[in-house]
Each structure stands twice: as C-alpha cells, then as structure tokens.
Design a binder for these strands. Structure first.
Lengths: 346, 346
DNA sequence: AAAATTTCCGTGTACGGTAACGGAAATTCA
DNA sequence: TGAATTTCCGTTACCGTACACGGAAATTTT
C-alpha cells in the first residue's frame, strides 16, 4: 500500500537512485545487468513515478501545437478554435501550453508551410484537422520519425500512427441528414445546395456525407429526384439569383439541405420568399442557430467541434505527461440534433 | 517574466520562508506588521504558488464523495455512476480519489443516513444528486459550516452555497418532449404514462417536466386532451393490463410519452400490439435505445448523465486543488435528441 | 605494463513548498 | 525585578524526481 519511490528501488537493487533514473529514462550509461535488475524490481513493485516530483524537478513548459484552418468569425473553425481555450485550464497544471498554427483550408501550399512552422516549434504533440490527403501523410510520417505524437480532429484521413481521432462519422451524418429531411416519408424532389469551391477540391467529409445522404434516399425514397445547385459563398447577389432561377424552374421543391456548415448563406433568400419547407443544415454557427430559432431552418446536425478539439488536446496531454494511451483510437462523437426547442443550452 | 517563489518573497521582505508560508496559509503566529509586508509584496509581484511543489510537500490523498441514488443495472443512475470512472483518470494525477455513497431515492431516511456517512469520511468535496428538498438543505448547511465545497447534478434544489450545478433544464425538457411528440402538428389526444410511486413523493424534475409539457400543449395544441395512466414498475403483468384497458377505452390515442427514464417499461406491450404511434421517452438506458432502434420508440431526450457527473467532479477538483472557481454556477447541459439514426455513437 | 579511454555508477544539489521544532524577544505574572 | 509565558520568527529536514559532475572500474591503446 505504501508508495514506492525510486529510493526504494535503489535500495532493493543495491544501486543508486541516479542509476534507477537512468533506467527509467533510457538515458543509457547503464550495464545490461543493472538495467535488468532495475526493470525487474520496477515491474514487481508496480512502481509509478510521482508526477508532482517529476514536474517540479523538470520545471519546463511543453507545448502542444494545433494545426487548424484559419478561422474567420462566424465560421465552423471559429467554434473549433474555442476548444483550445477550454483545454488550457486543464493543461496549465501540467505545465503545458497550446500554440495555434493556421492554414488556408483551400491551399495545400499554405498547409505545407504551416506544417513546417509546426515542426520548427518543436512541439511535444500536435492536434490537427487535416484537409489534404497527400500532404498530411508526408507530415504525419515526419512527426512519427521525430517521435511526436499527434491526434486528428474532424476529418479522419488515413495517416500512419495517429494517437486518436475525434469527430463525427461523415457517412452516417449524411444518412441522418436525409432521414431528418424527409421525416421518413416519401418525397418527390429534394435540393442539395453546394459550395462552388467544393467542385475543385472536395473536402472529404462533404463527399462522404453526400454518399450517406444518397444511400438513405436510395433505400427509403428511391423515386425521389435529387437536384443540386452550386452557389458562390463570396457573392450573395449571385447566390440569390441562382436560387431564384432554381425555384422558378422547380417550384415544387420543398426539401432543402446543405451538407456543410454554410446553410446560413441561403437563409436570406428563404426568408424573403417564405414557403412551407423543410431545411436541413450542419453545425451550430450562430447564424445557423438564429435561423433555426426563427424557423427558417428545420434542424441542424451539430458536432461540438470545441469539444472534439478539447478531447484531442486532452488525449495528447495524457499521453505526453502520463504516457497513457486513450482507450479507443477512433472516437466517433455523437451527432447532435438541434431544433428550435433545444438550441438554447447548447 | 521570471517565476516568483516564496524564497523571493522571503528575501524581499527580509523574513524567512517559514514566515511567508505562515502568511500564505493563515496559520497565525505572525505579527501584523510582517503579515502586511508579506501581503504587499505578494500582491505586488503577483506571486502564484507552485502547485507541484505544494502537492509534493503535502503528499496527502484527498477524496471526493459522491452521493447518488443506488444504481441497479439498467437504470438511469447506473449511467450517472459511470461518470465516476471517467473522472478518476483526471483525478489520479492530482492525488485525489472518489468514493461513492448511495441512498434509496425513495427514502429520506436512507438519504439522511448516507449524508452522515459522507460527513464521517471527511471528504474534501461532495458531488450530490439531491432528491429531498428539506434534508438536502440541512446537509448543505452542514457542508457549508465545515467549509466543504459541493456541486449538484441532475436536480437543482435551492441550497445555500453550492459551487455549481450540472444538468438539463427540467421545464424545457418537458416542453421539448411535447414539441417532438406532436411534431408541431395538431393532435387530438396524448397519453402520459406515469410511475405509480411518483404519486407519493414526486421527484422534482418530473414535476417540472410535466409542467413544461403542459405549457407547450397549451400554447400549440390547446384542443388536445391529455390523459394519464399510472403503472407499477415492479409488476409487468399489471402494467400490461393497465395499458390494455386504457387502449380499449381510448383506441384513438397515437401519441405516448413518459417523462422519466422508464419508457422501456411499456415497450413490451407496444410491441405486442403494433400500431402507427409516436412514442417519446427520456434517457439513453440500453433498453430504451434498443427500442429506439427497433422503431418502437420514436425519439429519446437524453442528457449524458456520466458527463454531468464527470464535470461536477472536475469542477470540484479544480476548486479544491487550484482554488479555481467554475466560470458558471449553473451549467445547464444540452438536451440530446436521439433517433434511430444517431443513437450509435452516443 | 603503463597510459588513455570508455563504461558505469554514486553523490549531491536543485526544484518550490510544508511544517515541526526550538529559540530569542516581547509580554505578563509574581 | 526576576521568572514564567506568549508571541513571533528562523532553521531545518523532508517530499520524490532530474541531472550534472566526478570518480572508480573495466576496457582499449600504445
């Protein structure tokens, strides 16, 4: 029941605590025989180092790097970035800090450049929201080579040796979206509004979501026509025109979804042309939630991005400080359904 | 930028670190003059004690007591109790442990007795799910007198000096339940199934939920008849009979809700008498979720009880170890909507 | 075989606080 | 005024780990 210390181990092995310490940290200068002896005793007694003593003696600050897309106000990544703040409280007592590195989510170059800056900063760990399959792999390999643990949030790209992933299952979220859009009843036409830029380099989650969406419709609403419309997020007037043209051509469409966080972009149009519609979107951006409360948007599928980031940071810190591995590698998070009556305390 | 230590303070005040320590901990034996001098320097330099050094020197284990209703398998409180496990990982490095004290949620005596045992154990803090207004107040006052901080989960009773509360807003959850039950459309009759025992001593959240439920109906469905049926949770056969009799008398009822976690109790009956119904319940007990996946239950309103307990413990630990107050006192948690398509990763 | 290295290990101190102990100074008592 | 207390404060020994330093023993070199 007594706490085992390195002094105990030193005594029992007939060696000094300096040697024990060398064994514990693999800093060499120990004969194989002594090494073995120490290891045996450690295992036998179930020695656990005293965290406080260790941190006190080291007294150095380690930093966790966050690699996230730049977060303009009112965007999804602004929410995610809040997770940093939440995590800081827990990190401080471990004398760890976070540092954020941002990149343009539409530019692979900018991502690469951000990766370089991360490496320069010699972080003790990295949390990243990856966007580019190839570049991320390269970066991941480098991290692995340097023995820097990392966790993924939001998008799960297949990279070697990640510690854990936090995010919602993309395919399932599309499936859920379709189920909620149609309420399980037969529908003749639905509209999926998409972002123009997405055409060039599609983000992985959006593609997967669409696939889940399509599958649900195929299974439950095979007769339904699924129409697409592309809008330019930078140009509200053009968006308006596009929607106008669309509804002139297909006035019967009453079910609308966007599979990204930007449903708020079409809200102004919808509110200028009231009708009995069902509208689905993703993520609790304040513009989206406002539209939800006004009834323009029927429901949102949300995912607590700040919590994902928080958990990813925490998992990393646990690993770094306590050498503790997370229970699961892939931590799929719950898909929250937001309607006007439960959006308040979110 | 340099870290200030008590040695610095000792040097600057011309006193010894023993004296400084006495000032820091208010353990007396310090002249007013010295006391003032030390305080001035501390304030001026913004001294912050080094947590590790402090904890290392003390090296004592503190315990947080959990005061929860007994948790039979398959009940709500079993879920809540899981929060203890989750919290333990974070507590260990702070050399804190938890210890659970249970009481019969239907017996005030048992609650009082559990309170006594909690006090005997001299905890550093208490997390409790209170049930009895008066007894809880008495207990809270005692805790306050002894300077033991405490947090509330699940039910927010008005008690003096609680550190924080974690739970969902009861009234709103009833309101939400009604909204989801009726899908916003006019309904002629709804059935609320209640637990017999509830009649004697009603639990606060259930009463509040019912009130929210009623208000929604009044506002959105004034013409609707709301019927009640009491069932005995201990007697499935009687439950069956009661339901049978009810539906013989009111065959038109297609909307059913229970405002507690026991919706699973009526699931067997519903499945033996299939019909096109809308059924709402609360909480993600596995029996409930199974029924949800089979389509018998339309939706559940869930509240992550283990997370509530976890957060409550964490808040307490933060307070005890780091003297840090939680940002908010009342932390209303999100009401999760569970349908068959998003119940998997919950 | 002596000198030069290398390998391996013990000693000692720092990290920042805690708290017991004991003694000098101030105060009260006789 | 001297003795007995109190008040107030400094000293010191930890708490358990990290790591620099230096030296003895083992090994290699000349």
């Amino acid at each position: 029941m007594e706490k085992i210390t390195i002094n105990d181990i030193a005594r029992l092995t007939g060696l000094s605590k300096g040697t024990v310490d060398r064994v514990l940290h693999n800093r060499g200068e120990v004969s194989p025989k002594s090494y073995q002896k120490v290891m045996d005793v450690i295992r036998e007694l179930g020695y656990e180092p005293n965290l406080y003593a260790s941190l006190l003696a080291r007294a150095e600050q380690r930093t966790i790097a966050l690699l996230l897309p730049t977060h303009e106000p009112g965007t999804y990544w602004e929410l995610a970035a809040k997770g940093e703040t939440k995590a800081q409280a827990g990190l401080k007592p471990l004398s760890m800090v976070t540092r954020q590195f941002n990149y343009n989510q539409y530019s692979a170059d900018s991502f690469r450049e951000a990766c370089a800056r991360v490496l320069e900063s010699h972080p003790a760990g990295v949390v990243m929201a990856p966007m580019f399959q190839y570049e991320t792999q390269v970066f991941a390999r480098e991290l692995q080579a340097q023995g820097i643990p990392y966790t993924l949030v939001d998008t799960k790209l297949e990279t070697p040796g990640y510690l854990s992933f936090y995010g919602i299952p993309a395919y399932k979220s599309g499936y859920l979206c379709a189920a909620m859009l149609t309420s399980g009843e037969p529908v003749k036409e639905v509209l999926i509004v998409r972002i123009m830029r997405d055409k060039g380099r599609q983000s992985d989650p959006t593609v997967m979501r669409r696939s889940g969406f399509m599958d649900y419709m195929l299974e439950h609403n095979p007769g339904c026509t699924i129409r697409s419309l592309f809008i330019n997020p930078e140009d509200p007037a053009a968006t308006d025109d596009a929607l106008d043209a669309f509804f002139k051509e297909f006035p019967g469409v009453r079910h609308i979804a966007m599979l990204n966080s930007r449903i708020h972009l079409i809200v102004p149009f919808l509110e200028r042309h009231p009708a009995d519609r069902r509208v689905m979107g993703f993520d609790n951006l304040s513009a989206n939630v406002d539209a939800l409360k006004r009834g323009t948007v029927s429901a949102l599928i949300a995912q607590r991005p700040e919590e994902q980031v928080h958990k990813a940071i925490q998992a990393l810190a646990d690993r770094i400080v306590f050498q503790r591995l997370p229970e699961k590698t892939d931590n799929y998070q719950h898909m929250d359904i937001l309607i006007r009556y439960n959006a308040d305390d979110y």
